[in-house]
Computed example of a mutant assay.
Amino acid sequence: MYFTLLLISFIAATLSLFRRHETRNGPYTAIRLAFIQSLILHGLFIFVYNEIFSALNLITPLTARLYWFFVALVVIGWLSRSLGAKSSWQQLRHQLGSLVRVRTLDGRSRFLLYIGLVLIIIPLLILAVYTPLTITIRTSIT
């Protein structure tokens, strides 16, 4: 359940960075840049948590929950500050809606997107969900 704090933080950071890059680049370039920068940012968050809390010998599930709760609050605050007015939220929703529709892509790019989803993303999703479930089931049996 606390894993959602990481997801909320990641999505909020990606949206905030997307909003920042969208004015200078097209929407597809902006979402790629935002995604990569959000991954780097969260890698930095994890590094900071590990280094500080391991030096203090405080790496526990409780401190991890508190840390990610704090990070999620900070990043959500950053997103709401970068968007500001209600019209900005509606504009962001409209921009993301246009990204989801792949009709704007040409045929070749759409084909590459579908191939990437089928051959890379969906198998990784299945592995990410299936492996922890089997490990949990096996450890509960023994």
Rank of each mutant, 00 (worst) to 15 (best):
T4M: 08
L6M: 04
L6G: 00
L6S: 02
L7V: 09
I8K: 01
I11L: 13
I11S: 03
A12F: 03
A12Y: 01
A13G: 02
A13T: 04
A13M: 12
T14W: 09
T14C: 13
L15I: 06
L15V: 04
S16L: 01
S16C: 05
F18L: 05
F18P: 01
R20H: 13
R20I: 10
R20A: 07
R20Y: 11
T23K: 09
T23R: 10
G26K: 09
G26D: 10
T29K: 12
A30K: 08
I31T: 04
R32T: 07
A34R: 05
F35Q: 04
I36W: 09
Q37V: 04
S38K: 01
S38M: 02
S38V: 02
L39A: 13
L39V: 13
L39E: 03
I40Q: 10
G43T: 12
G43L: 09
G43H: 10
F47E: 02
N50L: 15
E51T: 10
E51H: 09
E51R: 13
I52V: 14
F53D: 04
F53W: 07
F53N: 09
L58A: 09
I59M: 12
I59G: 04
T60W: 00
T60G: 02
A64G: 15
R65T: 15
R65P: 00
Y67H: 07
W68R: 00
W68T: 02
F69I: 00
F69M: 00
F70D: 05
V71T: 07
A72T: 11
L73C: 11
V74S: 12
I76K: 08
